[in-house]
């Protein structure tokens, strides 16, 4: 077992129902959930691999492929939708040449659409890593992408 997984598992010994926190912690460390990681989590938790994968694939947070350097999320919550969020997403898709869920070929950006960030008053919103960009316009997209 890779050393970093063993380290993570240590703090979840004897915790009931720790599969989800484990998956979160592993993803946080590795960037995504590899086949091996799922198999190790299954062994550690004493449940089958298919069960672990079943849980992981149920939740939107978990990813099974390596991600780009920056995560780019475009909000399509109600407020963002009403104020033109889908235009922002389309512009980003065009600029990066990827669809939501995809990663650019240079592994610079991974694009996702999310249902709501909860900063609806600033709609439409786009988030790069931890930077929230509010009151977005299609013309602002290129400038912002250029900063990363």
């Amino acid at each position: 077992m890779p050393h970093e997984l063993a380290e993570i598992f240590k703090s979840y010994q004897a915790e009931k129902g720790a599969v989800i926190p484990l998956l979160q912690k592993v993803q946080e460390n590795l960037g995504y959930l590899s086949k091996e990681a799922i198999s190790e989590i299954a062994k550690f938790s004493g449940i089958s691999e298919s069960e672990v994968f079943g849980v992981a694939s149920f939740y939107a947070q978990f990813r099974f492929t390596p991600r780009g350097e920056h995560s780019l999320k475009v909000c399509l919550g109600t407020a963002c939708h009403v104020r033109g969020g889908s235009n922002i997403l389309e512009t980003v898709e065009r600029e990066l040449g990827v669809q939501p869920g995809g990663t650019t070929s240079d592994y610079k950006f991974s694009l996702e659409r999310v249902a709501c960030f909860g900063c609806c008053a600033l709609a439409p919103v786009m988030v790069v890593d931890k930077d929230v960009h509010g009151r977005m316009t299609t013309t602002k997209v290129k400038d912002i992408l250029g900063k990363y």
Partner: peptide
């Protein structure tokens, strides 16, 4: 688990 898109009362 405030999930309604367009709502942020609990977050705030």
């Amino acid at each position: 688990d405030e999930g309604d898109p367009g709502a942020f009362m609990n977050r705030s």
